[in-house]
Design a protein around this nucleic acid. Structure first.
Lengths: 355, 355
DNA sequence: TCAAATCGTGTTTACGTAAACATTCTGGCT
DNA sequence: AGCCAGAATGTTTACGTAAACACGATTTGA
């Protein structure tokens, strides 16, 4: 019985091979059907894990598939069913470390769910290339979309996506109409500010991100609010653009003032730049000035001194986004904004104010 | 005439819309054909930019396409033609900054060439998940493959890809059989070493990457060779694992030796760790010890002091890889290894030896 | 002037799959 | 025994596109 089946399959496999050698394509569902001695539809049922197939038949088909090295043709499947088992990811640039980690988590999650990832690069919306990129997106065939906005990007308000496609946006912008996933910017800023106040500092200065960034303004607002709740009037914000250089410039300003003993920078890069300025001006960290960042970069623990910072879990943001998107694809209603909590990581750039 | 055409198209467009509203699919080539009053094949020709279509006909078809908002169905196109206009990218993790920049450049280049990117995450080859990931890769339908090996990865020799698919590998591993694109590791290490020797240092110590990394061993070999050519016997290598922590440990060892005045670290992260060690041990940079890194991270210019380093152009590596891959897809023979030159960036962590 | 070549366009077909419908077979019920 | 429900499997069809071939109209060349 077993021997019979094998012989039959082998004989037919060689036929299939001969046929495919011309067209340079792999075996099709029909080849498997012939090899297994069943109809194509039955092979399809086995391939898609339908239950109404007898065990013996299933076995025969699976053997034939293995023998021929059959792989379902995703294009044909997509054409017929209208489902692509692919999700598109729009990114504006991979320059931000956080976005990359998020992307990594999304990719892993998608892979585990059997989806593949189509990466759609999008130039700055202000760019002349934008219409072309947008057109390409429209013909990209995906079941859902995750948009990772770049915190560095300013005028993203221009970008409207009137699509009837399950979509999750990773960003701090409110009122999208889409499901939004974001780090709890406000909570993180509050943790940082409370730490410094708790150490006994009279006030906390803030090096903020650009005014056009929603995440930056969320962090700044929470910092201000925390100070106010402690009965402290917030000092003026020094605005940077997320870069170490801008942090350096802000740091030079702050370093020249004796009354500055505590700084909360809106990201680790600016904190790094500020620390450089403090070093150059001979201000000791943390003895004279304490500083806290935001992000918890891999290298932040090796800054000099190791940086106290707010850890945000890009991993969680990514996997949560995928989960919400898949639920939408399955037909669930789109949930509203979901915040991912932060965690304060205390290192050596902070202490109580010496003298 | 114009009016006539428009009326006709409009009338037919509504028909098409009504039809498509049921199936929830966009307009097809047939809808456009009817709207334009031509055959489907002619629409296909216009859609693919064939030349043998009369200007007036082309115009009519284009108008109809615009009116109906027609987008070609990639799945159908792929099914029919066997070409997917998609290239797969295998990455082992997005943890390395350089790999991410490379990915960004590849994505841009692919987009410009009209290809889309399918990101295929691959767990560590040693992982139990590897066979499943590999199977998924096989049914992933792509025209070509770019494999970005992680320099952090050790036993990648295990990974054999016996595929009859145009492939470019980005890595320092020799003898792949595939086209290889890589930064000129040896040239960069030579530049770094020569800089330090040229400044008058008696010798140069090396903090190397893990012995299992080909790029690390290329850098180390070129460093040793450069010293030898200058008649200097190379001091023992201190091996790290690319991390700042490992750089810190190596730095502690080096900082305790008075005869160490020049260090070449195999990457910027380890250089950063070493600088921290030097700071902690009270060794002044660059007055007592000069240090050079490799990579030129964005933040390296803001280290304290700003780090002299070897810049490698991930951008070039990425776009060159895409270019070579596209040529292969077009039928060109696979070229051999291509090296992308480095550039030395001199900042403030290096000087002549004081005293 | 007429056959041959060329050009623009239409018709037929196949790519691989899965839904819809059709058919056969099994077993349980009256 | 006769009949029907339901399970297993087969047959037909359509998804949207582009290659192959067919055909008529024009141009070319001797």
């Amino acid at each position: 019985m077993t021997g019979n089946t094998e012989d039959e399959a082998t004989a037919l496999a060689s036929t299939a091979t001969a046929q495919s050698s011309g067209s340079k394509r792999g075996p099709s569902i029909a080849d498997v059907a012939v090899a297994a001695g069943v109809s194509a539809q039955t092979v399809s049922r086995v391939s898609n894990g339908h239950t109404n197939v007898q065990e013996a038949t299933r076995r025969k088909v699976e053997d034939a598939m293995r023998l021929l090295g059959y792989r379902p043709n995703r294009a044909a499947r997509a054409l017929k069913s209208g489902r692509y088992t692919t999700i598109g990811i729009i990114m504006f640039t991979l320059s931000s470390v956080g976005n990359v980690k998020t992307l990594d988590a999304i990719t892993q999650a998608a892979s585990e769910a059997g989806y593949s990832i189509s990466l759609i690069p999008m130039p700055d919306p202000a760019s002349s290339k934008f219409p072309a990129a947008y057109a390409r997106l429209r013909e990209q065939q995906v079941d859902g979309l995750i948009i990772i906005f770049d915190a560095h990007l300013s005028d993203k308000a221009d970008l409207t996506l009137p699509m009837d496609l399950p979509t999750v946006v990773i960003d701090s912008t409110p009122d999208h109409g889409y499901t939004v996933v974001d780090t709890d910017q406000a909570g993180g800023a509050r943790q940082a500010t409370e730490l410094l106040l708790g150490l006994g500092h009279a006030t906390v200065w803030h090096i903020g991100g650009p005014a056009t960034s929603f995440s930056a303004s969320h962090r700044a607002a929470a910092w201000r609010e925390t100070l106010n709740e402690a009965g402290i009037e917030a000092p003026p914000i020094l605005y940077g653009d997320w870069s170490t250089d801008s942090g350096y410039r802000a740091g030079m300003t702050l370093a020249s003032r004796d009354d500055v003993t505590a700084i909360f920078a809106a990201n680790d890069h600016m904190a790094l730049g500020a620390m450089r300025a403090l070093h150059e001006m001979g201000r000791k960290i943390p003895q004279e000035v304490s500083i806290v960042g935001f992000d918890d970069l891999d290298e932040s623990s090796s800054f000099w001194p190791p940086l106290t910072t707010v850890h945000q879990s890009f991993q969680t943001v990514g996997s949560l986004s995928m989960q919400l998107l898949l639920e939408q694809i399955m037909g669930a209603p789109a949930p509203s904004t979901q915040l991912v909590p932060t965690r304060l990581v205390v290192r050596e750039s902070t202490s109580y104010p010496h003298r």
